[in-house]
Design a protein around this nucleic acid. Sequence first.
RNA 1: GCGGUCGUAGCUUAGCUGGUUAAAGCGCUACCCUGUCACGGUAGAGAUCGUGGGUUCAAAUCCCAUCGGCCGCG
Length: 416
Amino acid sequence: MSGFKFSIVKKLKSALGRAGVLNTPHGKIETPAFVVVGTKATVKALTPEQVSSLEAEVVLANTYHLYLQPGAEIVRKAGGLGKFMNWTGPTMTDSGGFQAFSLGAAFGQKVSKISKEGPGGYSSILQNTRIPNETRREKAEEAGRLARIDDDGVTFKSHIDGSEHRFTPESSIKIQKDLGADIIFAFDECTSPHASYAYQKEAMDRTHRWAQRSLSSHLAVSPPSEPNGTEQALFGIVQGGRFEDLRRESAKIIGGMDFDGFGIGGSFDKEDMHNAVGWVNKILPEEKPRHLLGIGEPADLFGGVENGADLFDCVAPTRMARNGTLYTNDGKINILNSAFRTDFSPIDENCGCYACKNFTRAYVAHLFRAREMLGATLGSIHNLYFIVNLVKKIRQSILDGNFSEFKEKFLGRYYK
RNA sequence: GCGGUCGUAGCUUAGCUGGUUAAAGCGCUACCCUGUCACGGUAGAGAUCGUGGGUUCAAAUCCCAUCGGCCGCG
C-alpha cells in the first residue's frame, strides 16, 4: 500500500463532504473527482491525449469486458491496463459485479439501477413480502438472462458469442491482478431496484461474504508490505439497495474490513439517493476514500459530494454524447433537435472545451445527422469536460468555503 | 405519331386475380439513457394511391380518357 495515500484537505462544516488528495503509483487524484469510464480499455470515441486534455485524472475499465476481449493475459503481457491503452495516469477496474445485474435481472428489460418510483411506489410494496406471482415472473425471466447468480459466484453467458464463463470473488481478483489497474474492486452483486427486501438482504449477505473472499485473495497475492511496482489498492463495495437498515448494516460490515477504500454500489430510489449515500458514509471510516459507483448526473454529483463521496464514475456523459444529448449550464440539450441546424453558437457559451471553442451547434448537429464519427468525438469531449470540470469546481468550492452557494447557483440555473 | 411501360408518405418501394382504420425501409419530429449487452432504444407525425370520368354494394386494385416520366419504332 505504500504507493497509496489518501489525505483530506478540507471538510464541509455542516455536511459530510470533503476535499482531498488520493495518491496512487501513477499519480494523484484530487478528490472529489470524476472518473472517466473506459470499459474496454478505451474511452469511446476519444484518444488518451484527448481524455487527458479534458483534465481527467483517472480512467475506469471493466474486468468482465476485458476478460472476454482481448483476455486478461494479453493485457498483462502488454504491461497492464495503463500501458496497453497508453494512459499514463491512474487506472481502476470494476470487478464485473455490475454485470451480474446488467446481464442478469436488467438484461433485455428497461430497468436502470436508479428507480424513479419513489419510496411509496411498487418497490415498497415488495419490501417485506414476496408476491407469488412476482416469484413466478422472475423465474420465467431468468431463462433469457445472460447472468445467473449462486452463492459461490456468477455464471455469465458472453454477450459477444454466447460462451459460458464463471466469475467468483477469487477469479475476479485474479483477473484484476492481471489487468493491473491501480485501484480494483471487490466482486459484488449489484441488485435491481425492483428486488424485494428479502432478496436484497440475501444478495447483500452474499456480497459481504464475497467481499471477505475478495480481500483474502487480494492479500494472498500482494501482501500490504510487499514493495513492488504492481501494487494495487482494493476497494470493498457497500450494498443494501434502497433500504436504510440494509445500507447501514452493509456499511458497518464492509467498513469494518481492511479495504483501502470503498465503493458504494447497487440500486437507488432516485429521490432518496443522496440520503442513501449519507447513511453509508456516516458509518464508513472517514479517513478512507469512497467511490459512488455509476453515478454522474449533475444533481447527483452535488448530492454525492455533500454526503461524503470522493469519487464518481458514470457512462452518462459519453453514452449520451454518442446519442446527441449534450450538457449545458442551462440543462441538457438534444443536438438533433431541428432548431440547432441553424444555430451557429457554441454548444455552451461559457464552456472552455475544444468542441465549444472551435465548432458551432449547427456543425455538430450536421455531424450527428450525417452520422459522422467526429460528432461522437466532439460530443464526448464536451460532455466529459463539462462533468469533469463540474466536479473540479465543486472541489474548489469546498476549498473556498462556498459549496452551498455554488450548488444553489449551478442547480438553480441547470434545472430552471 | 404508333407501341410498350411506369406514376402509392419527403425518398425508394410493397400491395394491384376488387373487400376491415393503404404497409415497409430510409428520412423527418420528439423523448430516453446513472459501476456500457449501447455510434443504442422508445414513441409520433406524414399518402384524399398522377388527374378526371365510369363499372360495382365496395376501386390503389377493373375499364375509358387525360397529364407526366422512361424505353422502343417511326
